[in-house]
Design a protein around this nucleic acid. Structure first.
Length: 272
DNA sequence: AATTCGTGCAACCGCAGCGCC
DNA sequence: AGGCGCTGCGGTTGCACGAAT
């Protein structure tokens, strides 16, 4: 049995929003607040799908949006965050006040990709481009040499089993994550201070398993709880991972904040 | 001036995660 | 435990607009 459609498509408008629709949406949200998007269109007198209303509000009408060009600082921050998080645009947006995930995604696809290619860096892997590789055309294949020989953490979260560097993590509960020299060098940076704190109570023990691979104490869906203070957790928001679980390697909590990374991110291929 | 091409952005679509029952 | 509904996310599409020819 299929899921019912999110709205009655026959009676909804599509395409660009009119000023009147914008005004109705703004007025309704000012009066009633965000949320309950499914019922909002009817309540606001809009012939729109709830999803469309939400998107319009978040990406365009929200009063705290920062319009205009991205600064160089934002540029670099996006690149660095993307290297670590991959295409987790909402997480990246969480670190850029006033910017939306959609805006950052578009900006990445139209500007940053090109910028990285000009630097000779593969925008997907953040590794140097090899002449003639698929990455030059922006095509990423799992079997490409760049991936096979070691990849940035966000790729590893997707299933690869190798880790960038033994020194990258695991020694202590420092507040920041060092990028492997090979990656950092490409970006001209030494240390990316993402302030990724490992909560001591949640940090699983390291152990060597039968296959010789050094793993954390969590088997199967191994998790390390990370408080990403600078990725959206603000004002002393504590770790609330206890009891949580997810089948995905990235676990955005209800606040939209990254809470977990697969422990395979920190597996050391050199330790055999 | 007209047409073609490239670029940027807003919006849509499908899916996954989560909470509730 | 499993089904269902809602929300949010990421990928993709389509249109508007400016530059080039």
């Amino acid at each position: 049995m299929g899921r019912s459609p999110c709205c009655e498509k026959a009676h909804t408008n599509k395409g660009a929003w009119t000023k009147e629709e914008d005004q109705r949406l703004i007025a309704h949200i000012k009066a009633h607040g965000e949320g309950c998007w499914r019922s909002l269109p009817k309540a606001a007198g809009l012939l729109r799908c709830g999803k469309s209303c939400r998107l319009r509000w978040i990406n365009y009408l929200r009063p705290d949006l920062k319009r205009g060009n991205f600064t160089d600082e934002e540029d670099e921050l996006i690149i660095k965050l993307h290297e670590f998080l991959g295409n987790k645009w909402s997480l990246i947006a969480g670190r850029l006040p006033g910017r939306t995930d959609n805006e950052i995604k578009n900006y990445w696809n139209t500007h940053v990709k090109r910028k990285l290619l000009a630097r000779g860096v593969d925008p997907q892997t953040h590794r140097p481009l090899n002449a003639g590789t698929a990455a030059v055309q922006g095509i990423h294949t799992p079997s490409s040499p760049a991936v096979a020989s070691g990849a940035s953490p966000h790729q590893l979260a997707g299933g690869s089993s190798c880790s960038p560097d033994a020194s990258g993590h695991s020694s202590d509960a420092d507040d920041s994550v060092s990028l492997p020299p090979s990656l950092a060098g490409n970006l001209g940076v030494g240390m990316i201070d993402l302030n990724l704190s490992i909560c001591p109570p949640c940090q699983p023990p390291l152990s060597r398993e039968a296959d010789g691979v050094l793993r954390t104490g969590y088997s199967e869906r191994e998790k390390i709880c990370l408080c990403l203070n600078r990725l959206g957790l603000h004002g002393g928001e504590g770790c609330s991972c206890v009891g949580s679980s997810s089948s995905s390697s990235l676990h955005p909590a209800s606040s939209g904040v990254l809470r977990f990374l697969d422990a395979s991110l920190f597996r050391d291929p050199k330790v055999q």
